[in-house]
Design a protein around this nucleic acid. Sequence first.
DNA 1: GAGTTATTTAAAGCGTGGTC
DNA 2: GACCACGCTTTAAATAACTC
Length: 297
Amino acid sequence: MAGVDVGEDFLDIATLAPESHHLSLTRVNLRNILSAPAETRLDTNALTSLSLMLAEKVPELRGAIVLVDSPRWPSDLDWSKPGVVAATHSKRGREIDVGLRALVYTLYKLDANSTLTTLSMFPTPPMRYFGAHLNSATCKPHLRMLGQELFGEALNHDYGAASGGVFTRFMIAGFSTYRALQAIGAEAYEGYPDLQFRLWRRHHQLLSKQKERTSALASRIRILSALARRLDISGSGQVQRLDEADAAILVLSIIAARQYGAIFILESPYEGRFMVALDEQEAQRFHQRNACRVTLN
DNA sequence: GAGTTATTTAAAGCGTGGTC
DNA sequence: GACCACGCTTTAAATAACTC
């Protein structure tokens, strides 16, 4: 079982091996795909380099269930088709996002005292956003290498100047991570650390990363430590970064949900699959135990 | 009460300014 | 020069606050 927090330059991976009671943290430097050994460079490519790096640095990932904090593909493309194919199933936003909002809204309606009110998610941008960033002269070399392999000839199109913020540019690394995980036999799901922290915080405060930057990490470490204690898992004390905390909550909340909560899987053939871990109380409100699969569309 | 406008929230990174 | 805090970038949706 593993959780992956995706950044432009790094993947932070939290793993818990079967029967193990220790959480391991690993940071993978994505810029290292530029320096693949010369003897293999001809036979290999950026996505293969990434999967080799993952398999070498985190061998437990082979055959693991992995939650990734990134969407699987641009919002206007169809994941079910090979290559770059425009999606036709949904014109307004992702089905996964709509499904998640409905889930959170239902939980709120079932408990008026719930602190879980609405769900704020940054929308996944369409292909033109990623195309414009990848075609920009200032694009980071390792992102360009990954992007060229992901999108191929679709990048020959003129997407205009890269506009807007760079918030969601990290998703190029996310799309690549799904491919690399697939290549090493991992079963990947999308996950959302902020939602998992809110669902598992119990009486602890969860402070905003944006507004209370200095206390945000401490508030997350308190939630992780409490959860790890309940599960009798060591190693949560290593968490020193927000990225590590995000990776750790993904894996710990899923393990906890398997023991005394419920797991929801939102599945869309066009967008991929999303996993949510519910704490005991929320699971009881839904009269759910173990896992529940919701097929979208 | 209906309609409009403002505010809030998530995501990662970059540039600036202050301190040591 | 290194390090840290801070403000800013985008989008969609829910809600709060406002006018008429």
